[in-house]
Design a protein around this nucleic acid. Structure first.
Lengths: 227, 227
DNA sequence: TTCATGGTTCGACCGTAGGCGAAGCATCGA
DNA sequence: TCGATGCTTCGCCTACGGTCGAACCATGAA
């Protein structure tokens, strides 16, 4: 039998603790250098170098050389999707990491998933757009005309996004809420815009997104939860 | 950092070639015995036994004892989802299994994904329902009233499905078409019904679903592709 | 009871892959 | 030009995990 593509290679790649930690760190969407990743995974420089070579070779991460630094990112949203799916499974089968720090609550509320907003607030954003028929998903997810107007009014330059190759809208399933939320370049733009508006900022030490009280209020007004 | 659940354990579990083959075989949705799985993975009985103990221990597969046989299945749709996501990634990064037999075409057209219809025809089923507003997906996927009527007319006992705990509708992303299709107990019921109507039967040696010429015609009539 | 079949446990073997220290290239700043 | 920093290559070690043969239980059939 053995139908379909070769799963084992990639799963084994993710299956190493050091590499898994590196990849989870990259889920923040930030580009990290080799040394930063070494710190994340708590391994030495030579070790992390070997790991990164494998990950890049398999197409899981992308590299960008800048001066004497090398910046690594996840290669695609698809990679992020696999990681999220794995997290969901791990959470479900009770493989939850024992240490459940105070951070965990914040992560559940709002966090960055690769490059867009996830967690409860991510789900609310998505649901709110859907309920008002600004976003539609018949087969592929896409903006309606009213949605495009809404997005523009929110201060996002749609034409610039459309010019890029990357898909505008993508759906992503997250591990904590187990609900669909908005990914793709539009998802990214939403998050960036919210940061620009001063609604929220990223916790530099985790994937959490910290909303200010005022930001929370504004968010609730802009994206009311569907009745 | 190391936020979120422990990915590495599970990924490592899937990462072993023997286990990966066993899991892919179980994607057919059929319950397989230990010896059958041993044949799939081309390993000895003791080896497969050890693997199954690990998989069951981690909650990836379920066991059911019957006489002197032990039947194994994937533990949940979530597990299947992870496997599909991995296949998608593997296919995308060019890790495609070199051997591209004649089966491959059939698999791309229609195949069973855990327990529901996937592949091009699975996508068409899903898109067709969405386009006619029989199925809606605002946050959670659900049937509209018209949809419920349609499903009943198709010969599916909805109330029986609703009585179960399992979610009625779920979305699943498949590796070949990279599009969303319908999973959940309704997805399963659709496939079963089509087999009952004689439209299609499962290839016993692979995950392919073979539609008869008449079945193909009927399918196209019942689920016209959205213009 | 006795045999056959499905599955597990045990022990031993072996390969591979992860890990680090030290040395080797690059690139930048002064 | 010289150091300092970031990353890679090399060589070596270690350990874990997959593998099987043989012996061992359990269930069902003769």
């Amino acid at each position: 039998m053995k139908d379909g593509p070769d799963i084992a290679r990639i799963a084994a790649l993710i299956g190493d603790p050091a590499r898994a930690n590196m990849l989870t760190a990259l889920m923040s969407g930030k580009a990290l250098t080799a040394t930063e990743l070494a710190a994340e995974a708590a391994v030495s420089a030579p070790t992390v170098s070997a790991h990164l070579a494998k990950l890049a070779g398999a197409g899981l991460v992308s590299v960008r050389k800048q001066g004497r630094h090398k910046y690594f990112t996840l290669a695609s949203g698809q990679v992020a999707h696999v990681l999220e799916a794995l997290m969901g499974l791990a959470a479900g089968t009770g493989q939850l990491r024992t240490r459940t720090g105070p951070r965990d609550g914040a992560l559940r509320r709002a966090r960055v998933c690769y490059n867009h907003l996830a967690g409860e607030m991510g789900v609310q954003l998505h649901d709110s757009l859907r309920a008002r028929d600004l976003l539609r998903a018949d087969g592929e997810m896409r903006l309606t005309e009213a949605g495009a107007a809404f997005v523009a009014a929110f201060g996002i330059d749609l034409s610039a996004l459309r010019a890029r190759r990357a898909p505008l809208c993508r759906e992503c399933l997250d591990w904590s809420a187990r609900r669909t939320h908005l990914a793709g370049s539009l998802g990214r733009a939403f998050l960036t815009r919210m940061e620009g508006l001063g609604w929220a900022r990223r916790d530099p030490d985790s994937r959490a997104i910290l909303f200010s009280p005022e930001g929370t209020r504004q968010f609730a007004r802009a994206f009311p939860s569907a009745a």
